[in-house]
Simulated assay, not measured.
Amino acid sequence: MSISKCKVIDLPRVADARGNLTFIEGHNHIPFGIKRVYYLYDVPGGSDRGEHAHRNLHQFIVCMSGSFDVHLDDGQKNKRIHLNRSYFGLYVCPMIWRYLDNFSSGAVCMVLASENYDESDYIRDREVFLKEIATL
């Protein structure tokens, strides 16, 4: 997989004086069906999250509150994306090394995933990731 397949996607926004609304539909706004949703919050200052890749899982990362950075690496290219709005998110395809850092106070990161949790889908060692990516 290539980092060029990872992209920021603008989500629909319904503006209203009573408050705005954004929604996400699998296979419509993002390129996969949603099987799992999880979120990160209360991340201590200076901490990072992630530091892994997925063999098959597709993810869509949204900053619901505050801000944070997502670092992507396909073994050849690196990219950093700053997320700070709840009406756009970052699509991350399989076989991309990622980590999140630079969390602001009160940041909330929501992740939509294409599959249920499966530990065997994780690559947690960067050297193993680089070996696997070289065989694709």
Rank of each mutant, 00 (worst) to 15 (best):
I30K: 04
F23V: 09
Q76N: 15
K5W: 10
L112A: 03
M64Q: 06
I61P: 02
M110F: 07
K7A: 07
M95W: 14
Y99K: 15
I61Y: 13
K79N: 11
D69R: 09
S120K: 08
S104L: 14
Y38T: 08
N84L: 01
Q76T: 14
F88K: 08
I81L: 10
F88Y: 13
D74Q: 09
G50W: 00
K77V: 07
C93E: 15
C6N: 10
L11T: 03
L136S: 09
V70F: 11
I81G: 08
Q76A: 14
P94W: 07
D48Q: 11
Y99Q: 12
S67T: 09
K5G: 15
W97K: 07
E25Q: 13
R124Y: 00
T22E: 05
W97R: 05
Y122N: 08
S65Y: 04
Y39W: 14
V8T: 01
V62F: 03
H27N: 15
V92R: 01
I3W: 07
L72E: 07
G50L: 04
S86F: 09
L100S: 09
I24K: 05
N78G: 12
H29W: 07
D48A: 07
V62N: 01
G106D: 14
I61H: 13
A113D: 02
N102V: 04
I61E: 05
R124I: 04
I61V: 15
F88G: 01
A53T: 04
L90N: 02
L21F: 13
V128E: 15
P31S: 03
D16A: 09
Y117V: 00
F60I: 06
E115W: 05
K5I: 11
L112Y: 10
A107N: 12
Y91P: 09
L83Q: 04
M110Q: 11
P31Q: 02
E127H: 15
N56V: 01
F68H: 11
D125H: 12
H54L: 02
C6E: 05
G45H: 14
L112T: 01
G106I: 12
E51R: 15
D121S: 06
D48K: 11
F60G: 08
F23I: 09
D118A: 13
P12M: 00
P94Q: 04
A53Y: 03
R18F: 03
Y99F: 15
Y39A: 13
R13A: 10
D10P: 11
E132L: 12
I133L: 06
D101K: 08
M110C: 12
S86Y: 05
E25W: 00
G33R: 07
K79R: 15
L21D: 05
H71W: 06
E119R: 10
K7R: 14
M1W: 14
D118P: 01
N116T: 12
R18I: 10
D74L: 06
E51I: 11
L21R: 04
Y41D: 11
F32H: 06
N56R: 06
I34L: 06
Y38E: 05
L130T: 02
Y117D: 01
F88H: 12
K7W: 06
E51G: 06
L112R: 00
L100P: 00
I34G: 01
V37A: 07
D42C: 08
L21N: 05
G89M: 00
Y41E: 13
R49W: 05
R55E: 02
S120I: 00
H82W: 01
S65V: 04
V111F: 00
D74I: 10
V108W: 05
I123H: 04
S4E: 14
K131S: 13
